[in-house]
Amino acid sequence: MNMKRRPKLRPAAWDGAVVGLVLALAVGCGVLLRGNGGSGEMAVVSINGEEVDRFSLAESAGKREYLANGYVLVVAVSSEGVRVAEAGCPTQDCVHTGVISRSGQSIVCLPGRFILRLAGGTERGNGPDVDAVIG
């Protein structure tokens, strides 16, 4: 058969270089994306509008205590997420909020002016298909 170019029909040593290059690209992309992509959420705690603490959920299992305008709040971190376990405030709204685990969610204690917010990872708002909630 006459051809424009005659190809090599058997695998050659240099093919390995192409395979290596593609593999390197795959691994490289994977590492890069893992590095910047949400390998776990960060919890950001602020009191009176100032950031007082920041920790990674994956590496911080256990309890933490904060003093917010006279109220003691105990924050519990587990594999499921983070919640306010105990609060000295009168409303207990923060305790009732329960466990949060997705980026963009928050727990708030109004009397203590305490906000715990999950950041990092990918923002997914308040649920599978809602960006915000009113009411």
Binding site: H96, N126, G127, D129, V130, D131, A132, V133, I134, G135
Partner: peptide
């Protein structure tokens, strides 16, 4: 467009009941 859930007044504490 932004998707905004309107809370179900009968179940406001559920968080995802719209």
């Amino acid at each position: 467009p932004w998707r905004v859930g309107i809370v179900d007044p009968a179940r406001p504490e559920a968080g995802d009941a719209f």
